[in-house]
Design a protein around this nucleic acid. Structure first.
Lengths: 346, 346
DNA sequence: TTGTATGCGTTATCAC
DNA sequence: GTGATAACGCATACAA
């Protein structure tokens, strides 16, 4: 077992000083061609690679980005990570991942752990619990310490940092407009409680689209699912709620769901109630998931371009990191959504 | 903006030496209660946290695990990561993720990048290209440098390291046995080329199950998909191949697919050919995906317990890291599969 | 052209 | 009880 070789060892072997070795390896022309070649050959032979940790300590830069997300087993978030990793790697950065699991505490702990020198900056999406408690002190403290943050998707406006968001409002309007154009008169929305900012915005888009078409929104067609029902083991409850919605309002001929699971469940319920899709009920989901494409019928969706969001977030962060803060000027980049039409709409 | 405070700054402020501060903070009883309290209060006030990088350099331990996987936008891999992260975090480790994107080069580069001090050990699943080229020098070199590796799922036996695998063979046999018990006489398999070790093993399990039941395998019922067709943009080709298989062999009454996509595509094709599932054709897939549950009909699968694999891999690695190598003795842990029966089988 | 000294932040050893 | 010093691995300003 040959452990990693250090400058010191090379210096000793070659009977020169450490700095000579260091300079020789960096092709400093202070060093004679002779020793330079000798050192480089030796280094190559022993496969010398500078120690990242030592470099980090010296340069006060780790070339590592910290990602904090609520959940990794989720198509949207994993696509974002892929985008971040792609850009990060291209620009010489590594990526370290922390999961908040939607918990405020885990979010805080994870961030504290990474903020102590392990990374140069954060890319994150806020956990539901944090959004609910509206306690953002950990973000402020991090930024105050001079560590930049880029938030994506689930962001909070008060915090002064770069943000990458989807145009939830416009995306929802696109979807609902489509349903209206396709002849739907009674469009229901299945959404989340308002403290999840994206849920709120998507609901707002729904309302605006109706308004634009002079359609009076009806509160009984707005179903706000409580968080707990998202879990795998509460699928039946979710189903029951949606079944209730459709049964109690038989006039429904269009459904806009703010995520994939709700949309799919709505289709399932509709089929169960012998309503044909898209003939009787048309369905659109807001999502970047994998289920939509393979569902039967396949689901028309509003795509969020998750990977692109990740790429943009990484670019913003690295630009910030490398352009030595030319004044505080934070951008909010909006990623356009795209309506992908499949079989669940006419 | 108050930058992170260091021991040195605290020492200066309190007009004591750095070592006094260090000791006081670590509750050394060398230090008088007086100064100890004073220092601790001050440290708390300024929210002192030791710098991880400095600690890493000193301790030659980073408390960080490197994960290298072929792809992150994949339910199986993201679940494994979740498992790793769970255990790692519990035991005080962070997780840094590198993606090989199924490329040999990216795998090598990523590993070299991380091996230079950034992490204490690897958990990885080998890229297809690496398996194809059978070039494992980067694994040997890493291990040779004293950096432990735990491989999962896609492993190679020659490399001396801990491994966590699914019992692919037994899992496949379970699935095929089920089909046989359910009355299938002509069972096709949709698998990958043999260089993907798990594909090979799953094919072998299929053959053994047939043999156990004295069923003569027929080569025309064994469809080996070439890698390129896995890609999103080649779905039609995949579909065409499978359609060919079923059309040319109308006697097929059971299909075993080594992954979710193949299984779903098989169901799609079967439906297109007006074959009822499970009445005419029963289908089982080898997978941990999300599609199976929401497909229509929902797909019977062999579950791999991905998260458990991740947890086990993390435990093996950290145990190894912390138990100062009591001789080289490498374990291979086999995670049992589980047959989850849904609507695609009788 | 080469080597020495210093510092990054921390801890451990040893001296006072 | 407290502090000076060395060490982790590297880069660099400065001295020789």
């Amino acid at each position: 077992m040959k452990r990693k070789v250090t400058l010191k060892q090379i210096a000793k072997e070659l009977d020169v000083s450490i700095s000579t070795v260091s300079k020789a390896l960096r092709n400093s022309k202070e060093i004679s061609e002779d020793t330079r070649e000798k050192v480089q050959a030796f280094a190559k032979l022993y496969n010398y690679k500078p120690n990242n940790i030592a470099l980090s300590l010296k340069n006060k830069k780790t070339k590592t980005i910290g990602i904090i997300i609520p959940e990794i087993v989720h198509h949207f978030f994993s696509k974002v990570i892929r985008g971040i990793e792609l850009v990060a790697n291209k620009r010489g950065y590594n990526v370290i991942v922390g999961l908040s699991n939607e918990s405020f505490n885990k979010e805080v702990i994870n961030m504290e752990m990474l903020a102590n020198g392990s990374i140069d900056g954060f890319i994150l999406s806020i956990s539901k619990e944090t959004l609910l408690q509206q306690d953002y002190h950990h973000f402020y403290e991090t930024i105050n310490q001079g560590m930049p943050i880029v938030m994506f998707d689930r962001v909070v406006n008060d915090v002064r940092c770069d943000k990458v968001i989807v145009d939830d409002l416009k995306g929802s309007k696109k979807a609902v407009n489509k349903l209206i154009e396709n002849g739907c008169k009674n469009i229901a929305i299945i959404t989340t409680k308002d403290y999840v900012s994206v849920g709120k915005l998507r609901t707002q888009g729904y309302l605006e689209a109706l308004e634009d078409h002079k359609i009076q929104p009806k509160s009984e067609l707005i179903l706000k699912i409580v968080e707990e029902l998202d879990a795998e083991d509460h699928l039946e409850d979710l189903e029951a709620e949606i079944e209730c919605l459709i049964k109690n309002n038989p006039e429904i001929d269009g459904v806009f769901a703010v995520n994939e699971l709700y949309a799919l469940t709505a289709m399932k319920v509709a089929k169960k109630l012998k309503r044909k899709i898209p003939a009787d009920i048309q369905v659109i989901g807001f999502t970047d998931g994998v289920l939509s494409k393979h569902a039967t019928p396949s689901l028309t969706t509003v795509s969020q371009h998750a990977q692109q969001m990740g790429e943009k977030a990484a670019e913003l962060l690295i630009d910030n990191l490398e352009h030595e803060e030319e004044e505080e000027h934070y951008k909010t980049v909006v990623i356009e959504t795209e309506l992908i039409e499949r079989e669940s709409t006419k």
